Computed example of a mutant assay.
Amino acid sequence: MSKADFDQAAADVKNLSKKPSDDELLKLYGLFKQATVGDNNTSKPGMLDLKGKAKWEAWNKNKGTSQGDAQQQYISFVRQLQS
């Protein structure tokens, strides 16, 4: 799978026939950030920032995953959501 496949999956996710659940959106976010940025090295948001904290934790779950592997997982997950 190539960068073009990843970019296509990132575009496709915006046109899914049904809106992903919050858990699915968090998984997509975490894989996307891991694939594009790498390991999360930002500080964890405060307790009152529930949305930011959830996104940070979703990204942090992928720590240690290579950017290439994260891209492949993202593409697979988007294709799963499309079916």
Score class of each variant (00 low, 15 high):
7 D>Q: 09
20 P>E: 08
21 S>P: 06
68 G>F: 08
56 W>K: 11
4 A>M: 10
28 L>W: 04
78 V>M: 01
79 R>F: 02
41 N>F: 12
45 P>Q: 04
77 F>G: 02
5 D>A: 14
70 A>G: 04
51 K>V: 13
21 S>Q: 05
40 N>Y: 10
21 S>L: 04
10 A>N: 05
33 K>R: 15
20 P>H: 07
47 M>A: 15
79 R>V: 03
45 P>I: 06
40 N>I: 06
82 Q>S: 13
21 S>M: 06
59 W>A: 01
12 D>N: 15
55 K>W: 05
41 N>W: 12
14 K>E: 15
31 L>N: 00
52 G>T: 06
79 R>D: 11
75 I>C: 03
32 F>H: 07
55 K>G: 00
17 S>A: 14
25 L>H: 10
8 Q>I: 06
69 D>G: 09
48 L>V: 13
12 D>Q: 14
10 A>G: 02
77 F>A: 02
7 D>H: 07
70 A>K: 05
3 K>Q: 12
53 K>V: 06
77 F>N: 01
72 Q>D: 07
15 N>T: 14
63 K>D: 11
17 S>V: 13
24 E>V: 04
13 V>E: 08
63 K>I: 12
46 G>H: 07
2 S>W: 04
5 D>K: 02
2 S>A: 06
56 W>Q: 06
27 K>I: 05
7 D>R: 08
70 A>M: 11
4 A>V: 07
37 V>A: 11
9 A>W: 01
31 L>P: 00
32 F>E: 05
32 F>R: 03
81 L>Q: 01
72 Q>R: 06
60 N>R: 11
57 E>P: 06
40 N>R: 09
29 Y>V: 02
1 M>P: 05
42 T>W: 10
47 M>I: 15
20 P>W: 03
26 L>Y: 05
74 Y>S: 00
71 Q>W: 00
28 L>H: 03
59 W>Y: 12
1 M>G: 09
82 Q>A: 13
36 T>N: 13
29 Y>F: 15
28 L>P: 00
10 A>F: 03
51 K>A: 10
30 G>S: 10
74 Y>G: 00
16 L>N: 14
42 T>L: 14
19 K>C: 09
58 A>D: 04
81 L>N: 00
69 D>E: 15
82 Q>K: 15
7 D>F: 06
75 I>W: 00
41 N>Y: 12
75 I>N: 00
29 Y>T: 04
6 F>M: 02
54 A>P: 00
30 G>E: 04
3 K>A: 05
1 M>K: 07
13 V>A: 02
1 M>D: 10
49 D>Y: 07
82 Q>D: 06
18 K>G: 07
52 G>E: 03
78 V>Q: 00
43 S>G: 12
36 T>L: 09
68 G>W: 04
